[in-house]
Design a protein around this nucleic acid. Sequence first.
RNA 1: GGGGCCGUGGGGUAGCCUGGUGAUCCUGCGGCGUUCGGGACGCCGUGACCCGAGUUCAAAUCUCGGCGGCCCCA
Length: 470
Amino acid sequence: MEKLPPKKNFSEWYHELIQRAEIMDVRYPVKGLYVWYPFGFRIRKSVYGILREIMDREHEEVYFPALIPETELGKEGEHIKGFENEVYWVTHGGKDELDVKLALRPTSETAMYPMFRLWIRSHADLPLRVYQVVNTFRYETKHTRPLIRLREITSFKEAHTIHATFEDAEEQVRKAVAYYREFYDRLAIPYLICKRPEWDKFPGAVYTIAFDTVMPDGKTLQIGTVHNLGDNFARTFDITYETPDGEHSFAYQTCYGISERCIAALISVHGDDLGLVLPFEVSPVQVVVIPVLYKGREGEVLRVAREIGEELKKYRVVVDESEERPGAKYYRWELRGAAVRIEVGPREVEEGTAVVSFRDEKRKFKVEKEKIPEMIEQWGEEMRERLYIRALNSMKEKIVLCESLDEVESHVRNGVVFTYLCDSERCGERLDEFGSVLGEVIESPVSFEGEGRCVVCGKEGKLNAVARTY
RNA sequence: GGGGCCGUGGGGUAGCCUGGUGAUCCUGCGGCGUUCGGGACGCCGUGACCCGAGUUCAAAUCUCGGCGGCCCCA
């Protein structure tokens, strides 16, 4: 097996790793569409398992159609303006042209909200909280990249909620942010939380809060968004409810989403020159047992290796009985991000021990064989903590506070710039020349004063993040 | 939005400028044997010129178009 390109050549590394670790097959003959390999799909399954577990606490899972009639998609003015250039249209059924064109959903507000209008009658129907995990389509014209910029987003988890009052919607936004925090904490992925500037919010929203993580090359990746929609969509789609005293009132809505970019972040943030590094909880191979086979000793070694595998069967375990030499097996499973490796050879069989090592460390150590099952969980959690600290430190290194436009211009090439910015779109546009304004910093691993002089015009400004983005 | 580069076995490549050889090398994959504590070795086998049109006696190589990929600038 050939070596992977070093991670410092991030683009190359990412592309090769995705293919070689069998996450996505990038050879599908349509731009921007990729195939999930079985191995990649197992990562997706465990990551989305966590997301579903979190969502299921107070949302119901639903499924809405992928096709949206043009008449509904076009109702909300700002919304359609934001998406019209990237919508795929279904124009024909067989040979007949359709009377009303059908859009492949770029997102599902306009599929859901006409139905919510029928579902919501009274205050007793509120709040309504649902989510779905679906594919969405966007005709991307820039470079597409597996898991990051797609024409078919295959794994869009979108939640939609409806409330009686703006304050209730505000409260839901806070909860959604907390859910996403928990999700990314479990994946050991650090993030910035920003309030997107007015000109970059979700089309149709009152405001947008976004999670961004920092990739190895210093560009940021948006990995989650939370939108307070106010009553904008309720007014467009006529979603009203009857209050306890018989009045009719428009409802207030939120929506928030996470796509397979969370998996792109997982791979990019933790991976190393040898391949995938995945937290124990989501690795498709949580434990790999490697028997070290010597001529004449194969039987006993294999027997013990299988025993260990059997005792750990509540985890995702592989006992690698293939004919390769141990070294080749180590590299193979390191590429695939097996979290814990257990080696058993003739020596260990005699001692009743095994050699244990973790994917994120060079260290190897001996453990009594019987102790392994009770230690696994703890090792997994310790590994998650190590990964998180390492990722956090590397993110902190890439954030710099800048107090002049020259500094912004030079630093944004290598990472994230924090600087002060007033509310004017003009000043924002000036910064957008260097990268993208991510917005007002709400939460960050690096803290600076929240207010200062706008780096462009010198008026009162707030702490904002600027970065090159994916 | 503008510009540039590229498409060769499963992956990565040489060859293309200057048309003509049995299309190069690494890797992977299958088989056999000797091995096995960080990418073993030997032997055998497998497998490619993106698609279409054109120029030509002859096209991986030249021209045009399509599709796909990468990079730079705004």
